[in-house]
Each structure stands twice: as C-alpha cells, then as structure tokens.
C-alpha cells in the first residue's frame, strides 16, 4: 500500500518538474522564468522526496529524504529572491508587455 501511495507522489512530482522546465523555456523574462522554475521545481522535488519518505518509512533513507524536503522548502525561495533582486539591480528588463513596475520608483 505504501509503495503505491509513494509511487503516486513520485509521479506527481515528476509531472510538476517537467512542467517547471517547460515554463522555464516558454516564459518571456527572467522574473516569470524564476516563478515557474521555483514553484514547480520545488513542489515537484518535494513531492518526489515525500514519496521516497512514504515508501521507505522511518529509516535512514526516509528521514534524510524528509529533512532534505524541509531544507529545500526553506532555501529555494531565498535563492530565487537573491536571483530576482540581482537581476533587477543589473538591469535585466521586464517583458515589454508587463503591466506595471512599482519597483522602478524605489531607485
């Protein structure tokens, strides 16, 4: 039973990872790309790790997978934030069809 549930989690994770990669190619500018890559890739990877945890249970592998998932949830958004801020400071432009840019007034 645990095997089946874990495998389902892993499959969901793979689907989201693939969608994240497609988004990385399709979206027009740095910021939108970061959105798709952080959100989908993080949820996908966390889902794969949770699947591993469910299959292996409370064993060395399972506990490490769970801790890695928590670690990823805490650090991935920080990395995305740093990349986005760095991109803006080094004048990476928004997509020309963007609606608004409130950050520009900050300078």
């Amino acid at each position: 039973m645990n095997n089946i549930i874990g495998t389902v989690f892993i499959i969901i994770g793979l689907v989201f990872d693939v969608i994240g990669c497609i988004g990385l190619i399709r979206f027009p500018d740095v910021y939108s790309r970061l959105q798709s890559s952080t959100k989908c890739a993080v949820l996908g990877t966390v889902s794969i790790l949770l699947g591993t945890f469910i299959i292996r249970g409370v064993s060395p592998t399972g506990v490490k997978a769970f801790l890695t998932a928590v670690f990823l949830l805490l650090t991935a958004p920080v990395a995305a934030h740093a990349l986005a801020r760095g991109a803006y400071k080094s004048a990476a432009r928004l997509w020309e069809k963007s609606v608004c840019d409130d950050y520009a007034e900050n300078k």
Binding site: F16, I19, I22, G23, R26, F27, D29, Y31, S32, Q35, S36, K39, C40, L43, L94, W95, K97, S98, V99, C100, D101, D102, Y103, A104
Partner: peptide
C-alpha cells in the same frame, strides 16, 4: 496555497496562448 498556486502556474504554462500579465507591485 502552494498546491493551488502550482496548478495555476502549470495551467498557464501549458496553455498555448500563455495568458500572463506580469508586473512588479508593491
């Protein structure tokens, strides 16, 4: 919320028209 947002983004990515209106807000 994370799951909702992911499904939302996934739908936008897979939609051939790419329905996004991005912008930076305060």
């Amino acid at each position: 919320e994370c799951l909702k947002a992911n499904i939302n983004v996934a739908i936008r990515v897979l939609n051939p028209k790419l329905p996004i209106h991005p912008g930076i807000v305060k």
